[in-house]
């Protein structure tokens, strides 16, 4: 367990992430989602808008952005300000550091992304249903896969937010919609497929089977975390050059 997870790293990272000034930003996409859902509930009369709105806006905008903000800050912020050295100057295995920080990102994305997605579903449909439970499960999957990718990006580059945004716009937003093969490597499609497997709602626009989504989601998550940990184990400090 200690090679994979470290509770001290988890708690310190949790406090660091929630203690930053930008922490208020975490709730912003969720508040917009719930606000728009409430507005549409009061004004729209079509029965198909909840899965369309929550599937498209929730799964392709709110969840990825929330995961991007959180996933790039749990490790990236400490690398940027240099405080990660205090953590890395201890014998904690780098995989445990990566997985612990990833766990914080998943928990916070579930709280600020998946739970609001569920609440917006409840507001839109008036009750807990297969759709709302599907949205919750799919959003939880999105929290896992997206954060694995964003934590990996933080370990690979100091421009994780820029590359993450580019990935969301180009890969998830464009290629995964246009190229069938790209859907195999799309975190958005994994989460929609899981949501659809529970909700059985064609408006969710899922293109992968549950089995494919589950296997590929696991493979991508494990590979991203392994790569992130490997990169973290090579973390270097540059001194002044002669």
């Amino acid at each position: 367990m200690t090679r994979l997870f470290n509770p001290v790293v988890f708690l310190v990272t949790l406090r660091a992430t929630l203690g930053r000034r930008q922490a208020l930003l975490l709730a912003l996409p969720a508040l917009i989602l719930i606000g728009v859902a409430a507005l549409l509930t009061a004004t729209a009369h079509s029965p198909v808008w909840p899965p369309e709105f929550l599937g498209v806006f929730g799964f392709t905008v709110v969840l990825p952005l929330t995961a991007l903000i959180i996933g790039t800050s749990v490790l990236g912020a400490e690398i940027d300000d240099g405080s990660v050295v205090h953590l890395l100057a201890t014998p904690v295995p780098r995989l445990a550091v990566t997985v612990s920080k990833f766990s914080v990102a998943v928990v916070l994305t579930v709280v600020f992304g998946a739970v609001p997605e569920y609440l917006a579903g409840v507001i839109a449909t008036g009750a807990t249903s297969r759709l709302t439970l599907g949205l919750l499960a799919g959003a939880a999957v999105a929290a896992v896969v997206y954060n694995a990718l964003f934590v990996m990006l933080s370990a690979l580059t100091t421009r994780a937010i820029a590359f993450g945004l580019l990935y969301l716009l180009v890969w998830e937003g464009l290629l995964a919609n246009l190229v069938a093969g790209a859907r195999l490597l799309s975190a958005g499609q994994y989460s929609l497929s899981v949501a659809n497997a529970i909700a059985h709602n064609s408006s969710l626009n899922a293109h992968l089977t549950l089995g494919t989504a589950a296997v590929m989601g696991c493979v991508v998550t494990v590979a991203a975390l392994a790569l992130g940990a490997r990169r973290l184990s090579k973390f270097s400090l540059k001194g002044e050059a002669a």
Partner: peptide, 18 residues
């Protein structure tokens, strides 16, 4: 002096540079 390589040497010894 500054730029002499002191920090680099310390990073080599503490495993923060190969």
């Amino acid at each position: 002096p500054n730029g002499a390589g002191k920090s680099t040497l310390i990073h080599l010894i503490s495993g923060f540079l190969a």
